[in-house]
Design a protein around this nucleic acid. Structure first.
Lengths: 148, 148
DNA sequence: AGATATTACTTGCAAATTGCAATTAATTTG
DNA sequence: CAAATTAATTGCAATTTGCAAGTAATATCT
């Protein structure tokens, strides 16, 4: 058996670095956490605060403040729900959408660059493995429970 | 082509969560960052502050303060180098070693649990893929440059 | 229907983390 | 031996974090 922890330790750090790189679009500069928030709002349809906070496993009070920041930066819009007046529905502004898309593209470019160091077969294998890993983690009881 | 970013976004989040889980040993409670520091000190031989800070790609000033905290917690020992009096050599105390080892074991247990949802062939493939990915990232110019 | 409980979100701290700029002390370079 | 470089530390000041407590709206229960 390998030392799995060693492998994951290194991988985790590199992911952390990759994440940090990717959050500057023109004059707009956001944190990795904020980038995750934009990503998730973009992905869901008219989500509430709770939904996004849960999806990224973030404390709701911290999340509330992050959203306030993003609203001030005019990247996110909070619309009161008509069905339930306690709820705010989140969406990206035009600028927010632009930022999210640009980050997505640059992340994909980064990843393409990383994958360019492999041959086709290796690429396929790695992609398939990451899917497997994601599935296994979602089945796992020890972590990741709040994540889809 | 797949959407790689989607896959990595989810994986990154799950790793983040895994990381957070794993830092409480008895009455000692440390942050994920501190756990990385302990890990890296344990791995190297009589490293200097610079060396560790660079290995985990952390700002040296932040690192300096983290070390101060860990020294107060009696997990890390700072020994002035006799060869160069500017330098401090880092090592784990007995307690620090214990904490590092315990975290290592519990991380490995977590990972075993995750891998238990795969068959033997899948396990092999995934492990091999992560190695490939690590290699590719270390060759990459866009990230990870400071990391071994 | 009306009191009670629950839910969604917000604020008040207080602690921890971060990084840039500037400092100290030791070593190297010219 | 003076000047430049290096290792590590400190002074801010901004950001992030989470618990506890609060407000307002909705759901539940007799």
């Amino acid at each position: 058996m390998e030392n799995k922890r060693e492998l994951f330790q290194v991988l985790t750090r590199r992911f952390g670095l990759l994440n940090k790189n990717c959050c500057s679009v023109g004059t707009v500069d956001i944190s990795p956490v904020q980038s995750h928030i934009l990503y998730e709002i973009d992905k869901q349809i008219a989500p509430s605060m709770q939904q996004i906070a849960e999806a990224i496993a973030m404390d709701i009070t911290t999340f509330s403040r992050q959203i306030q920041t993003l609203v001030k930066m005019e990247l996110v819009k909070k619309t009161p729900s008509s069905a339930d007046k306690r709820v705010y529905l989140l969406s990206l502004t035009l600028q927010g959408k632009f930022v999210a898309t640009t980050i997505d593209e640059s992340m994909n470019a980064y990843l393409e660059e990383v994958f360019s160091h492999m041959n086709e077969f290796e690429k396929e294998t790695v992609i398939r493995s990451i899917k497997l890993l994601n599935q296994a983690m979602s089945k796992s009881s020890v972590c990741c429970t709040p994540l889809l």
